[in-house]
């Protein structure tokens, strides 16, 4: 679900990994002003408010995660509903 990979990496080639990680990160950081999108907390609040109109949910029931990759960034929103059901939604850009 989160796309973490634990591929065994060649020992002694960590420099290559460092370079690739930097290239991906900086491609994102250079686009915006800050290091991570600053609209996420606001988005979280808005989503929570929208849901509250219909169902009662706790403040920390909304979980927003962002995965940034070379080609694709994805936003994953998890909302925990009372009664054990979970609504999942994900968007990619």
């Amino acid at each position: 679900m989160f796309g973490f990979s634990f591929k065994p990496r060649n020992k002694g080639k960590s420099a290559q990994t460092a370079k690739e990680r930097l290239q991906i990160l900086l491609a994102h950081e250079r686009g915006g002003n800050g290091s991570s999108p600053d609209y996420l907390p606001m988005l979280q609040r808005d989503i929570l408010e929208a849901i509250k109109k219909h169902v009662h949910v706790e403040r920390d029931a909304v979980d927003i995660r962002m995965e940034r990759d070379d080609e694709l960034s994805s936003l994953e929103i998890n909302i925990e509903l009372p009664g054990g059901r979970t609504v999942q939604s994900s968007a990619s850009s």
Partner: peptide
């Protein structure tokens, strides 16, 4: 350490 591939070299940093 660069020779052993454990540190980025000049070209790597310049490219970034």
């Amino acid at each position: 350490r660069i020779g052993e591939g454990e540190m980025m070299n000049v070209e790597d940093v310049l490219e970034i």
